[in-house]
Design a protein around this nucleic acid. Structure first.
Length: 955
RNA sequence: GCGGAUGUGGCGUAAUUGGUAGCCGCGUCAGACUUAGGAUCUGAUGCCGAGAGGCGUGGGGGUUCGAGUCCCUUCAUCCGCACCA
C-alpha cells in the first residue's frame, strides 16, 4: 500500500475550506499580486482537460507568489449569460437561470476536485442583480458621456450641453457619428427632442440605425467578432445584413488610445498584432472630387494621395447616398438594378465571390482637380460603405483590386510610379498592378522624380493648400453593436419618452430581469422582454426591450473581484488603489478581438471617469494553448472497394464468409487504406493504440457482431492496432478526456503536474493518454522519499550532505528561474530529477525534505500538505515561506571545463573555481592532455569563458 | 494577399540565452521479482557502424575559435485578418 491520493486529497480540500485558508483581504504590509483566469461560461457539457490548463498554471503561480510573501488575489466566477442556456429555455421552457445554476454547481464541483486556491468569497456571476447593477450603471455613464478629442478623454454630456448653450459647436472637437455645425442660438431654438437627437450623435452609448449582422436563426444581431465566414460563431447559423435601430458603444473614439496602450502592456506580440489589425489604423488623405456638370462633390479616402494622376475612374459603394443624385438617365435603370442586387446579397455570398468582379457605370464623371480630366464614376460592391467615405479614386496601375476592375470593364490604366531601377512601361500591357510603396513618380506633373513617400507628403500639402482635401487617419475599427434581441442578458436601464431614450435614475438600479412566459420573440417580432408584464417605469414610460450582449458582463468583471460585495459603488477607492489592476491574466487567445478589446475600452472609460486608477486592465497576459484530442480510428472494410482492389489479385481474406457489414481490418494490414473507411472509436477502449475488441463489441448494439482482421505483435499474438489523428476534443469524436475520471484514477496532483508537464503552456498540444503514468510514478516516488518500506513516515535529523544540498539548491534555482518565464514543464522535470537524485542518495533528512515539501506545494498541494503535517507541523504548508536560494548551489570548489582544440571537444579539465581567466588559460596550456594534443603545432589563440569552456586554437 | 508564429530522436519536449545537442517523460528493448502482468523495480535506447569512428537540430549559404540559438535565403506546417482603398 502506498500513497492514497483519494483520502489525502479529500482531507485537505476540506481542511482548506473549513479553515478559510485561501481567503484574502487587503493587507498593506505585503506587496499585492493579482492573478486572474478568464472566467468560464458554464456550459452543460462540464469541463474537459483543456479547460483547467490555464487554471492550473495560474493556480501554481498564485501559490508560488504567496510562498514568496505576496498578498495574492486569485478569484473565480462565472460568465453566466450566454446563448446555450437560452436556446435550451426556448426548447424546454426551463428558465435559463435554473440551467445556469445547475451548470455552475457542476463546474464548481469539478474545479474543487482539482484543488484550486480561489477565494470563493469573491465569486461573481454576471447574471446576479448585485453584479449587473454595475454593468447597468456603467452603461448609464457611457450614455451620459462624450469623448473630447482635445483632452483625449470621456467627459460628461452635461458639459457638452453647457457648451452648446454658450457657443454651439464652435471649436468643438468631439467623437461623433456625423459632424454637425450650429450656433448657440440655433441650439436653444431646438425642441427637447431635437436636442436629444443631436446629443445622441455624441454619446458614448448611443442609439442609431445601423447595418447589423442579423442572425435569423438566433433571432438577434451579433457583433463583428461574433461572426466568422458569414456564420454565427456560436451555433454556426447564417448571418445577413440588415438595417436596425440598435444601441452602439462608441469604441472608435478610443481607437488611438487602444492602439497606443498596446505599447505599455506585456502581452504576446501575436495578440497585440491581432488587435492592431482589428483597429486597423491607416494614415492617408481625404480628397474632394467635383462632379462634372453638377454643383456637388464626392469625398474619397486614400492612403496613396501620390497616385492621384493615375486615377482613371472612381467607384462608389452600392449604399452610397449620392448615387441617386448623380446617376444619368440612361444608366438609372441599370444602376438601380445593380444596387438592389448588391444589397440583397448575403455576407456569405459576397465573401465567397470576392474574386468575381461586378459593377455598373453611373453615367456621371468626376473631375481630376489637377488635370481637369473627366473620369467615369462607377458603382461596385468591392467598395465598402463602412470604411473611409464609401467612395474611392481608382488607380488601377497601383492597386490590384482597381486593376482587376479596370481589366474586367476595359478601363484605362495609367502608370504613375516607376518600379525601382526600371523604366516606365505601357501599363495597359501589365498582367498585375504594382502596389508597393516604393519607386519614383512618373506622369505626375509636379510629383515627377519624387519617391512615393515624398510624393504622398507633397500631395497632401498641395491639396490642403488648395482646400480640396486634407491629411486624415482612418480606422477599421467599428463601433460595437450593443443590443441583443434576447431574453438572457442584462436589461438596459433605459426608458423611452417621446421616442427618445432616457437613462433611469441610478437609485433604481439594478433593473432586474423580469419573468416571462416564453423565451422567444413576440408575434410582432419584438424581443422577448416585450412579453414582460408592466415593462415600464412607474411613470408609465416604456422600458427598453433589448438586452445587452455577452461581452457586457465580462468587460469589467476583474474590477468587481477587488470589491465584490460593495453595494454602494462599483469599486471602493481603497480596494482599487490597493489591487490596482490584474498583474497576470491567463486565458485563450481567441478573445483577441472580442472581450480583450472591449475590456480595455471599458477600463479606459472608467479610468476617464476617475473610478479606477489604471488605464489598462491587464498588465501581463499569457495565452494558454488548446489541448487537442487524440482520436482513435478503426477501419471498416468497404466490400466494394475491397473487391475492386483485389480484382486481379488473390484476396487475403474472404469477405463473404466473414460477413460484410462490420468487418474491421487492423491498421498495418497491407492495402488497408485502399479498401477501408476510418471510423472513430471511443478512446477508453484503446490502450497503447491496441483495441480491446471485446469492449468494442459491447460498445454499441450495431457493433456487437463485429469481426476483425488482426495483425501480429512481435510474439505472434493477434492484435488490432488503431490509427490516430489529432483533432479538437469533442464528445462526437469520442476523444474527450474528462478531468473527473483522471482525478479518480490518478489524483488531482498527478493531473495538475501532468497538464503542466505536457509542454509549454502557450503551445497547443494533443493530450497524450499514456504520459500521465510517468507523472503518477513520480508522485509515488516522491511519497516514498518520506516513507519507509512499511509506508511509515520516518525522518532523520542529521545534517544534510553536500550532495543532498546541491540537489535541493539546484531545484530551488531552477524553480525560481523558470516560474517567472511561466515555464512549468521544465520545473516539473526539475522535480523529477531532484527526486531521482535524492532517491539514489537514500535521503530522508528533514533538512532536505521540509523545504522540498514547500517547494512542491504549488504543483501538488494535497500531497505537500499531507507531507507537511506528517512531519509534525500544525499549520498549513500554504502559509510557509519559499526556501531562500542558496547562492553556492555548486558546492564543489572545482569546476570541470570542457577543453576544445580548434572547436572540437577533446578532454575535461578540473580547475579551482577561483582562478582568473589568465590563470585558467595558463593552467589549460600546461595541462598534460593539452600538451599531448597540441604536440608540435603552434598555439594561435586561447578562448576562456570562465565557468563555461576553454577553447584552444592551434595551426 | 497581409500579418504572427513554429520546424530538434519513434513521440511530447530540454538546452544555463552564442559554449559538451537530446535533460525529463512516453514508447521500445533487455534483465529482476513473478503462475501471470495493461503491476513494480533495474539497465539500455539520436542515426549509421562489429569496432574505431562518422553523421546529425527542415534545406542551402554566411558571421564566429565555437551556431539549435545570430544574419541572409529557401521550403514546410499552424494560427489570425482579409475587397479596409
Amino acid at each position: 500500500m502506498d500513497y492514497n491520493f483519494n483520502e489525502v486529497e479529500k482531507k485537505w480540500q476540506e481542511y482548506w475550506r473549513n479553515n478559510n485558508i485561501y481567503k484574502v483581504d487587503i493587507d498593506k504590509n505585503k506587496p499585492k499580486f493579482y492573478i486572474l483566469d478568464m472566467f468560464p461560461y458554464p456550459s452543460g457539457a462540464g469541463l474537459h482537460v483543456g479547460h483547467p490548463l490555464g487554471y492550473i498554471a495560474s493556480d501554481i503561480y498564485a501559490r508560488y507568489k504567496r510562498l514568496k510573501g505576496f498578498n495574492v488575489l486569485h478569484p473565480m466566477g462565472y460568465d453566466a449569460y450566454g446563448l446555450p442556456a437560452e436556446q435550451y429555455a426556448i426548447q424546454t421552457g426551463t428558465h435559463p437561470a435554473i440551467t445556469t445554476e445547475k451548470n455552475i454547481n457542476r463546474y464548481r464541483e469539478q474545479l474543487d476536485k482539482i484543488g484550486f486556491c480561489y477565494d470563493w468569497d469573491r465569486e461573481v456571476r454576471t447574471s446576479d442583480p448585485g453584479y449587473y447593477k454595475w454593468t447597468q450603471w456603467t452603461f448609464i455613464q457611457l450614455f451620459n458621456s462624450y469623448y473630447c478629442n482635445q483632452t483625449k478623454k470621456a467627459q460628461p454630456i452635461a458639459e457638452l450641453v453647457k457648451r452648446f448653450e454658450s457657443q454651439g459647436t464652435e471649436g468643438l472637437d468631439a467623437a461623433c457619428s456625423t459632424p454637425l455645425t450650429f450656433t448657440a442660438e440655433e441650439w436653444k431654438a431646438k425642441s427637447e427632442k431635437e436636442q436629444q437627437e443631436i446629443l445622441m450623435n455624441y454619446r458614448l452609448a448611443y442609439l442609431a440605425d445601423t447595418m447589423v449582422n442579423w442572425c435569423p436563426e438566433l433571432g438577434t444581431v451579433l457583433a463583428n467578432d461574433e461572426v466568422a465566414d458569414g456564420l454565427s460563431v456560436r451555433g454556426g447559423h447564417p448571418v445577413v445584413r440588415k438595417t436596425m435601430k440598435q444601441w452602439l458603444l462608441r469604441i472608435t473614439a478610443y481607437a488611438e488610445r487602444l492602439l497606443e496602450g498596446l505599447e505599455t502592456i506585456d502581452w504576446s506580440e501575436s495578440i497585440k498584432e491581432v488587435q492592431r489589425n482589428w483597429i486597423g489604423k491607416s494614415m492617408g488623405a481625404s480628397l474632394l472630387f467635383d462632379i462634372a456638370d453638377k454643383d456637388i462633390n464626392i469625398e474619397v479616402f486614400t492612403t496613396r494621395a501620390d497616385t492621384l494622376f493615375g486615377a482613371s475612374f472612381m467607384v462608389l459603394a452600392p449604399e452610397h447616398e449620392i448615387i441617386s443624385t448623380i446617376v444619368s438617365d440612361e444608366q438609372r435603370a441599370a444602376v438601380e438594378e445593380y444596387v438592389t442586387w448588391a444589397k440583397n446579397r448575403s455576407e456569405r455570398e459576397r465573401m465567397a465571390e470576392v474574386k468575381k468582379v461586378s459593377g455598373v457605370f453611373t453615367g456621371a464623371y468626376g473631375i481630376n482637380p489637377f488635370t481637369g480630366a473627366r473620369i467615369p464614376i462607377w458603382v461596385a460592391d468591392y467598395v465598402l460603405m463602412g470604411y473611409g467615405t464609401g467612395a474611392i479614386m481608382a488607380v488601377p496601375a497601383h492597386d490590384s483590386r482597381d486593376f482587376a476592375f479596370a481589366r474586367h470593364f476595359n478601363l484605362p490604366i495609367t502608370q504613375v510610379v516607376a518600379k525601382p531601377g526600371e523604366e516606365p512601361s505601357d501599363a495597359s500591357q501589365w498582367t498585375e498592378s504594382f502596389d508597393a510603396k516604393e519607386g519614383v513618380m512618373v506622369n505626375s506633373e509636379f510629383l515627377n522624380g519624387l519617391t512615393v513617400k515624398e510624393a504622398i507628403a507633397t500631395m497632401i500639402a498641395k491639396v490642403e493648400e488648395m482646400g480640396i482635401g486634407k491629411g486624415k487617419t482612418n480606422y477599421r475599427l467599428r463601433d460595437a453593436i450593443f443590443s441583443r434581441q434576447r431574453y438572457w442578458g442584462e436589461p438596459f436601464p433605459m426608458y423611452y419618452k417621446d421616442g427618445m431614450p432616457y437613462a433611469l435614475d441610478e437609485s433604481k438600479l439594478p433593473l432586474e430581469l423580469p419573468s416571462i412566459d416564453a423565451y422567444k420573440p413576440t408575434e410582432t417580432g419584438e424581443p422577448p422582454l416585450a412579453r414582460a408584464k408592466n415593462w415600464a417605469t412607474e411613470e408609465g414610460y416604456k422600458l427598453e426591450t433589448n438586452t445587452m450582449p455577452g461581452f457586457a458582463g465580462s468587460s469589467a468583471y476583474y474590477l468587481r473581484y477587488m470589491d465584490p460585495q460593495n453595494n454602494n459603488e462599483f469599486i471602493s477607492k481603497e480596494a482599487n488603489n490597493y489591487w490596482e489592476q490584474v498583474d497576470l491574466y491567463i486565458g485563450g487567445a481567441e478573445h483577441g478581438t472580442g472581450h480583450l478589446i472591449y475590456s480595455r475600452f471599458w477600463n479606459k472609460f472608467l479610468f476617464d471617469l476617475g473610478v479606477i486608477c489604471k488605464d489598462e486592465p491587464f498588465k501581463k497576459m499569457i495565452n494558454q494553448g488548446m489541448i487537442q484530442g487524440r482520436t482513435s480510428f478503426v477501419y471498416r472494410v468497404n466490400v466494394q472497394k475491397y473487391k475492386e482492389y483485389f480484382a486481379n489479385k488473390e484476396m487475403p481474406f474472404d469477405v463473404e464468409t466473414l460477413g460484410t457489414s462490420n468487418l474491421f481490418v487492423s491498421k498495418n494490414i497491407e492495402g488497408r487504406e485502399f479498401y477501408s473507411d476510418p471510423i472513430r472509436v471511443d478512446i477508453s477502449m484503446v490502450h497503447n493504440d491496441i483495441l480491446d475488441t471485446e469492449e468494442f463489441n459491447q460498445w454499441r448494439d450495431d457493433l456487437k457482431d463485429s469481426k476483425f482482421i488482426f495483425e501480429q505483435d512481435k510474439e505472434g499474438n493477434p492484435i488490432y492496432v488503431c490509427g490516430w489523428e489529432v483533432e479538437k476534443m469533442s464528445k462526437s469524436k469520442f476523444n474527450v478526456q474528462n478531468p473527473d475520471d483522471l482525478v479518480a484514477k490518478y489524483g488531482a496532483d498527478t493531473l495538475r503536474l501532468y497538464e503542466m508537464f505536457l509542454g509549454p503552456l502557450e503551445q497547443s498540444k494533443p493530450w497524450d493518454t499514456q504520459g500521465i503514468e510517468g507523472v503518477y510514478r513520480f508522485i509515488r516516488k516522491f511519497w516514498r522519499l518520506y516513507t519507509d518500506e512499511n509506508n511509515e513516515f520516518s525522518f532523520s535529523d542529521e545534517p544534510a550532505t553536500k550532495e543532498e544540498l546541491k540537489s535541493l539548491h539546484k531545484l530551488i534555482k531552477k524553480e525560481e528561474d523558470d516560474i517567472e518565464r511561466i515555464s512549468f514543464n521544465t520545473v516539473v522535470s526539475a522535480f523529477m530529477i531532484c527526486v531521482n537524485e535524492l532517491t539514489d542518495l537514500k535521503c530522508n533528512k528533514r533538512e532536505i525534505l521540509e523545504p522540498l515539501a514547500i517547494m512542491v506545494s504549488p504543483y501538488a498541494p494535497h500531497l505537500a500538505e499531507e507531507l507537511w503535517h506528517q512531519m509534525g507541523h500544525d499549520d498549513s504548508v500554504v502559509m510557509q515561506k519559499f526556501p531562500e536560494f542558496v547562492e553556492s548551489y555548486v558546492v564543489e570548489n572545482n569546476f570541470t571545463y570542457p577543453v576544445s582544440i580548434n572547436g572540437k571537444k577533446r578532454f575535461d579539465l578540473e580547475l579551482p573555481i577561483t582562478l582568473s581567466p589568465a590563470e585558467i588559460e595558463k593552467a589549460a596550456l600546461e595541462s598534460a592532455e593539452a600538451v599531448k594534443w597540441i604536440a608540435d603545432k603552434s598555439v594561435k589563440k586561447v578562448i576562456v569563458v570562465p565557468k563555461k569552456i576553454i577553447n584552444i586554437v592551434v595551426g
